[in-house]
Amino acid sequence: MHRGRRRLRPAVLAAAAACLALTATGCAQVDTTAPSSVRAEAAHGAPARFGTVDCREAKCIALTFDAGPSENSARLLDILKEKKVPATFFLLGKRHIATYPELVKRMAAEGHEVANHTWDHKILTRISDAEIREELKRPNDAIERLIGRRPTLMRPPQGRTDADVHRIAKEQGMAEVLWSVTASDYATTDSALIKKRVLEQSSRDGIILLHDIYQGTVPAVPGIIDALKARGYVFVTVPQLLAPGKAEPGKVYRP
């Protein structure tokens, strides 16, 4: 099905930004599935699907980064390697994957989950079905060329999604991943504030949203990791958070 999507007025866009600050699903009526539900529905006694972490027992949390790679990503990868923390990267295509292909390869080689954040950060609920397909397919094609496999996870820009997006994501073999923790790092360069916001919102099975494209974010990451580890958290990728279950294409996941 093809349908047009109206452009939103500035006042509506301002409201959308306010909604984003509160987390995506606080405004849109989106059916989401919690990681704990995915794990509970998996076969009883099944081993954890990824590595040695079993989030049925461990106090897990997932660190995710949107809209890279960028000039800050190499330093971020150094930090994650030093701290032995895996992350999930939702990558943009235009000006990002295409500009930093070696960083995409490094992310995959160092055990991080490489996922899709569209080609040009278009709000998917405002564009045609054909454009949605293009926004999702182009990054997947580019990532597959670089690391040899297609992403199975995607994050819609601003967390804005609807039934059409679900259907097209399913066609392309992808599940959608939202978040439960946001530092609004797009609005501040204060690394201490970013850390404070993350720590205030974090809880078991949390999915933390950060952006390595902003200058205040990467400097905040070591403190976030150290503080959460001190609270007993184990960092995992999104697939590890769901294991022994698995993300189902067309579904939306959020704690």
Rank of each mutant, 00 (worst) to 15 (best):
H2V: 14
R3Q: 15
R5A: 15
R5K: 14
L8M: 10
L8T: 11
A16L: 13
C19W: 12
A24D: 09
T25G: 13
T25C: 14
G26I: 11
Q29C: 07
D31I: 15
S37Y: 02
G45T: 15
A46C: 01
P47L: 02
P47R: 10
T52G: 02
E57M: 10
I61T: 04
S70Q: 04
S70N: 06
I79R: 05
V85P: 05
P86S: 03
F89E: 00
L92W: 00
G93H: 04
G93R: 03
A98P: 08
E102M: 09
K105A: 08
M107T: 12
M107G: 02
A109Q: 08
E110L: 01
V114G: 03
A115D: 07
H117Y: 04
W119L: 07
W119P: 12
T125L: 10
T125A: 06
D129S: 14
R133T: 15
L136W: 07
L136A: 02
K137C: 10
P139H: 01
N140C: 14
N140M: 11
D141P: 08
A142H: 02
E144L: 10
G148D: 01
T152E: 15
L153N: 09
L153W: 02
P157N: 03
G159L: 01
D162I: 06
A163S: 09
D164S: 14
H166R: 15
H166Q: 15
R167S: 10
R167T: 13
A169Q: 05
E171D: 12
E176A: 11
V177T: 13
V177R: 03
W179G: 01
W179Q: 06
V181S: 04
V181W: 02
T182D: 10
S184C: 14
S184A: 12
D185S: 08
D185E: 03
A187Y: 14
D190M: 00
A192W: 03
I194H: 07
K195P: 15
E200C: 07
E200G: 14
G206A: 06
I208E: 04
H211V: 05
D212F: 07
I213L: 04
I213T: 15
Q215G: 13
T217W: 02
I225T: 09
A227E: 11
A227V: 04
K229E: 09
A230M: 13
R231L: 02
R231P: 09
R231F: 01
G232C: 03
V236R: 01
P239M: 08
Q240P: 04
L241T: 07
L242V: 06
G245Q: 06
G245P: 14
K246T: 13
P249I: 07
P249H: 12
V252T: 06
P255I: 03
